[in-house]
Design a protein around this nucleic acid. Structure first.
Length: 562
RNA sequence: GGGCGCGUGGCCUAGUCAGGAUAAGGCGGCAGCCUCCUAAGCUGUAGAUCGGGGGUUCGAAUCCCUCCGCGCCCGCCA
């Protein structure tokens, strides 16, 4: 696929540069200055980089390189010299091999290896996921899928914050108010909000909550421990149900308490003590990171002896580092500082640091969300509404279908629409939640891509896949553009897996669907003359497979009819 | 006040990390395309001093400096 073409161009260019003795700039990323371009399948502007060193004009250098290029090509058709640019073009063999490879199996499966732990969602068990949380879940789950597609073995983990103040507040809330029997996570939110309200007017609540934390951490009261575990499990149960609605699941769960019970939190504290950077101030045990640019000290233990989230998280990260070759954390922008401190502390202990993907906040038109104040739009509500709208849209288009069919399509369209809306935006862009946009199923959305896939399936249902075909007959501009787009899947995956940027795959998915739709519009398949028909059917099959794999990697259902 | 992130047509966004050859999509606007494989589609058109200013460079949306605006953080919360 495209990576094969890329590496051939790289070796051609490298060999030519060596032949001319131009190996000055052969270090570093993209030293050959290769890029995709409207002027070529792959273009190099390396001549510009060599010009100041060689003291010659870029045009002259490009010309010399061009002359020095080997003439024996495999996937390259020709190299055109265009002023200072070297333009590489793919050949017929490449196009044919893409169509052929894409007929069966998963030719885009990457060659990356190694075990990766991706921690995502890890929302506190104090309420349902809201439209901000799902940015974490969708980015995380999409990265899990991308890394797997790239060839890695991935463990998706949920870190359950059962020891924090929020959970203690929930436990206190359950003791003083009634869970009302609504969906577990929503019921938990109600008592949590009520408890917070109570705490605002009654200072005794804070004391009781602190006592709960102490008892749970010391393990001296089995009844308290039972309450914490029950509350967290109850809330997480509801959260997982919501995640399932979005086609998201975790492979393993680690509880904060696990790292207290096995003593590793205390080992961490001991190890940090050895750095000589710890101090006791006002009774609290703290780590001074000022020499690394953090003006606030990192508190490891409260004055009352209990540990904090950050301390337990250090222990969890030590465990993750020991059980993987690469670890990724998905965190909201409110964790920027704390995660930087965490990485510094890990470095001090000589523990491998995680790669951290930070996403910016999702806010409401009325301001930022808050579970504690009950100010949020839940993921369940969003999914319900989107599904309702999708049902209306399906019914408009397929009124003759059964209600079951329309509901099932609506469910899968909604699932995709919600995921795509979230993943299509780069993580470092803050967004404002907008109902109108969320309920719009037009071009920059999952249904657009699902629809292309369904169209391909429809053709294949009618005409089948050809046993024999001659892909050299696929010479139309739209056909060639589509084949190229299909071939790019592997390079998109590799890049997204390396940079941890799932939105790049979302962009690719849209482009792929667009290419297919244009082909669909201009290249009739079923009515074409036999040989052309078979070749086009093969291309439809290749497109269907590429669309299916792309959707699958985005966690979006690939509907065969909609 | 300090740290980090963001600022691209009326609105939302890609491109920025690895500087290159006419700044790319969507929504909305206007004008077209269903005797033709699902029109959740396709085509055309109008609309951008890439937040402002300076700098580096043969070349800057992209790198550096500075200013402005917005977001997040600066808890013995997570």
């Amino acid at each position: 696929m495209f990576l094969d073409f890329t590496s051939e161009v790289e070796s051609l260019l490298k060999a030519a540069l060596e032949r001319r003795g131009f190996n000055v700039y052969m270090e570093g990323v993209n030293s050959l200055a290769l890029e995709t371009s409207p002027h070529a399948d792959l273009a190099s502007s390396v001549a510009f980089r060599l010009a100041p060193v060689l003291k010659k004009s870029p045009v002259a250098i490009a010309s010399e390189i061009h002359k020095a290029l080997s003439k024996s090509f495999d996937l390259v058709d020709r190299v055109e010299l265009k002023g200072p640019y070297l333009n590489f073009f793919i050949n017929r063999k490449f196009l044919s091999s893409v169509v052929k490879q894409a007929q069966v199996g998963d030719p885009w499966k990457g060659k990356m290896a190694g075990s990766v732990i991706v921690e995502h969602t890890s929302a506190n068990p104090d309420g349902p996921l809201h439209v901000g949380h799902i940015r974490n879940s969708v980015i995380g789950d999409t990265l899990v899928r991308i890394l797997r597609k790239a060839g890695c073995t991935v463990d998706a983990e949920y870190y359950v914050n059962d020891m924090g103040r929020q959970t203690a507040m929930v436990v206190w809330g359950i003791d003083h108010f009634k869970l009302d029997g609504s969906k577990a996570d929503h019921a938990i939110a109600k008592v949590y909000i009520a408890a917070n309200k109570e705490a605002e007017k009654n200072p005794l609540v804070a004391q009781e909550v602190a006592a709960l934390i102490q008892h749970y951490e010391s393990g001296d009261d089995p009844a308290v421990a039972k309450k914490f575990v029950w509350a967290a499990e109850y809330a997480i149960g509801g959260i997982l149900e919501t995640l399932r609605r979005m086609n998201i699941s975790h492979d393993s769960f680690h509880w904060e308490s696990e790292f207290v019970r096995d003593g590793s939190v205390y080992e961490i504290i001991k190890n940090l003590e050895k750095t000589g950077l710890t101090v006791r101030e006002e009774g609290a045990f703290q780590l001074d990171l000022s020499r690394f640019g953090f003006d606030k000290k990192m508190v490891l233990k409260r004055a009352n002896g209990t540990t904090l989230y950050i301390t337990r998280d250090l222990a969890y990260h030590r465990w993750k580092a020991a059980h993987s070759e690469r670890e990724v954390d998905i965190l909201g922008s409110d964790h920027k500082l704390i995660s930087a401190q965490l990485r510094t502390a890990l470095k001090l202990m000589d523990i491998r640091e995680p790669e951290v993907v930070i996403f910016e906040f999702v806010s409401l038109p009325t301001g930022s969300m808050s579970t504690r104040r009950g100010k949020f739009i839940s993921a369940d509500e969003l999914l319900d509404e989107v599904e309702k709208q999708a049902f209306i849209e399906v019914t408009k288009r397929r009124p003759e279908e059964t209600e079951d069919f329309r509901h099932e399509v609506a469910r899968q369209v909604a699932q995709g629409a919600v995921r795509y809306d979230v993943v299509k935006v780069s993580a470092d862009k803050a967004t404002v939640f907008d109902w109108t946009a969320a309920l719009d199923f037009d071009k920059l959305s999952a249904p657009f891509i699902q629809y292309s896939h369904a169209r391909a399936c429809s053709i294949l249902r009618k005409a089948g896949t050809p046993a024999q075909f001659n892909s050299d007959l696929l010479t139309g501009e739209n056909e060639i553009a589509l084949i190229k787009k299909i071939s790019e899947f592997d390079s998109v995956i590799e890049r997204a897996a390396r940079d941890l940027k799932p939105h790049q795959l979302a962009t690719y998915a849209r482009e792929l669907a667009e290419s297919f739709n244009i082909f669909y519009r201009y290249s009739p398949v079923i009515d074409a003359e036999t040989e052309v028909k078979d070749a086009r059917l093969a291309l439809v099959n290749a497109s269907r497979n590429a669309l299916r794999e792309t959707l699958d990697t985005l966690g979006i259902p690939a509907l065969e009819t909609m």
